[in-house]
Amino acid sequence: MSRVLVIAEHDGEALNISTAKSVTCAAAIGGTVDVAVLGHGIDAVAAQADGLEGVNRVLAVNGEHLATPLAVNWADEIVALGADYSHILGPSTTFGRDLMPRVAALFGVNQVSDIMEVTGPTAFRRPIYAGNAIIDVETPADTRVVGTVRTASWKAAASGASAEIERITATSAAAGHTRFVGMEAEGGERPDLQSAPRVVSGGRAFGSEEQFELLYRLADKLGAAAGATRAAVDAGYCPNDMQVGQTGKIIAPDLYIALGISGAIQHITGIKDAGTIVAVNKDPEAPIFEVADIGLVGDLFKVIPELEEALG
């Protein structure tokens, strides 16, 4: 029977929503699901993990060198924990993408990246070519499965359960060659892009950082998170953590409003799982209209104020 270990993503205080989504994917594999919370002073986070529906046991691993998620430190610890598990999963966020391939290499296996569907205990479905093709892959017999979970494909496991917490002292040692210096978080008051039910995104059409304020105003009116294209980020109109797409965030909000976005495949791949896509673009031929559920040909500098007014 499968024994699945999910590596929790957290910031030392709160569990990231990607963990609850990974748990749902883990449950689809069948067997038991344990969650490993690594860090330093992680009781609060472990308590959140043990509430997730479907979790059998939480391994709370404490170590000073695990305080920040440096992959070189975390991977060794996970390899020590992982010996008893058939599957080890992390989310396909930058956290998991940094960490899990390292774990896979230490176990001598390839990683199954971006699992969007589980079709059997060792059979998975995942996107390639920016989502233009979906492949069915099978891991080799009698090897450990290491994978990342495409969070946009999975619903978060509910809270309300209460699993056993096992407290463990880290056995690995710090890799002296890699040192954490600091973290510059851009996040403001707006909802988190990766979990918000509504997202308003802007493209190059905004033309300046100042005019991006229009987007923020609309987002705030809708209680939405703010997103952007690579072009908008590269032009310096907004911070990099707003980028949606193949090389940014892959999201699945109920409502996605794309303003002045052409609809390049690298962008579309990040929003394919959105419930409803609304596109506003002045070019009726823009490819974004091919994926939009509701399209409006128009100038965003005119449409945004109208929207604001209509929303009251």
Binding site: H177, T178, V181, M183, E184, A185, E186
Partner: peptide, 13 residues
Amino acid sequence: REVDAGLETIEID
């Protein structure tokens, strides 16, 4: 490093 939450800085040998 460009990470989901923003920009992380590390020092490596």
